[in-house]
Amino acid sequence: MLVELKIPENVGFIARVAKNYGIKRLCLYKCRVTEESYHTAANAKDVLENAVVVEDLQEFLQRMNLIVGTTGIPGGDYKYLRKELLAPEDLPSVAKGRVAVLFGREDYGLYNEELEMCHVLVRVPTSEEYPVMNVSHAAAVILYFLREIERVQEDDEIATFRDIEVTLSNLVEMLRMVQYPEHRIKRTVVIFRRILGRAGVKKYEVHSLNAIFRKTVSYIKRMNRI
């Protein structure tokens, strides 16, 4: 999935790379697509023509089993968002079911709120002297390692983003009831989201966790009424 790419040629180049590796589903979120995009796509014009145009990013991602974010920055202001960066060759070991790989804006990449939604972050190892790659080049490297994933059958038993988010909302309620420090809740949620997403948990497993959190909240409420 391409997120708000501003340079039309990059959209075309990535469509071309996707077709090189037999990846047929390209999703576009607020990308600038022009005639130049089709020109640089060359013989992958059909990939662009059949691309899925996404209006609501979060709603679209709800159906995914794994959301992979890409970044060229290992640190940043919120370092917890960019911990545990995987190399591209490690992705096949965690990619299960419906996988969405987010490639961000040429000038800024993915925003922090988008990185928060990701279960896994991947970074292409580059020279410290010049670490940031053009988005189309990064896509070429990452999609090479994911070229076989597209052919894997979807697994309806793997928890979706929506399943995990319901559980995390109950986790947040429980943390607040036990007076967990408010400033640490967001970081804790990101950690749990990435553990569960990276593990490829099944629906029944995440539902069991959800039941524990809900039962704990219910018990605390009863105790507070005594």
Score class of each variant (00 low, 15 high):
residue 63 R to M: 12
residue 3 V to M: 07
residue 20 N to I: 00
residue 25 R to G: 03
residue 16 R to A: 01
residue 74 P to I: 06
residue 19 K to N: 11
residue 7 I to N: 13
residue 64 M to N: 11
residue 76 G to V: 02
residue 88 P to L: 05
residue 18 A to L: 08
residue 75 G to D: 12
residue 50 N to V: 01
residue 19 K to S: 08
residue 57 L to W: 05
residue 59 E to C: 10
residue 18 A to D: 00
residue 18 A to T: 02
residue 38 Y to S: 05
residue 45 K to H: 04
residue 88 P to W: 05
residue 13 F to L: 09
residue 84 E to G: 13
residue 15 A to P: 05
residue 23 I to V: 11
residue 62 Q to G: 09
residue 18 A to F: 02
residue 41 A to E: 03
residue 32 R to M: 09
residue 77 D to R: 15
residue 65 N to H: 13
residue 56 D to C: 07
residue 64 M to G: 10
residue 47 V to R: 00
residue 73 I to D: 11
residue 46 D to T: 00
residue 28 L to V: 07
residue 66 L to G: 08
residue 8 P to A: 12
residue 58 Q to N: 13
residue 36 E to N: 15
residue 71 T to I: 02
residue 25 R to F: 01
residue 64 M to E: 15
residue 54 V to H: 04
residue 71 T to F: 01
residue 48 L to Q: 03
residue 39 H to Y: 15
residue 3 V to P: 09
residue 17 V to N: 03
residue 8 P to R: 05
residue 12 G to R: 00
residue 22 G to A: 08
residue 13 F to H: 12
residue 34 T to Y: 07
residue 43 N to D: 14
residue 74 P to D: 03
residue 16 R to Q: 05
residue 86 L to M: 15
residue 54 V to Q: 06
residue 76 G to H: 03
residue 3 V to R: 06
residue 58 Q to K: 14
residue 45 K to A: 08
residue 33 V to M: 04
residue 60 F to K: 13
residue 72 G to I: 01
residue 50 N to E: 14
residue 55 E to P: 09
residue 80 Y to M: 03
residue 72 G to Y: 09
residue 6 K to V: 10
residue 60 F to L: 11
residue 71 T to P: 01
residue 33 V to L: 07
residue 41 A to H: 03
residue 35 E to A: 15
residue 69 G to M: 09
residue 78 Y to L: 15
residue 12 G to V: 00
residue 25 R to T: 12
residue 60 F to V: 04
residue 47 V to P: 04
residue 58 Q to D: 14
residue 14 I to V: 11
residue 79 K to Q: 12
residue 67 I to D: 10
residue 87 A to V: 09
residue 61 L to Y: 09
residue 57 L to R: 04
residue 84 E to M: 13
residue 57 L to G: 08
residue 16 R to H: 09
residue 46 D to P: 00
residue 71 T to Y: 02
residue 21 Y to S: 01
residue 63 R to K: 15
residue 32 R to S: 11
residue 49 E to Q: 11
residue 46 D to M: 00
residue 4 E to N: 11
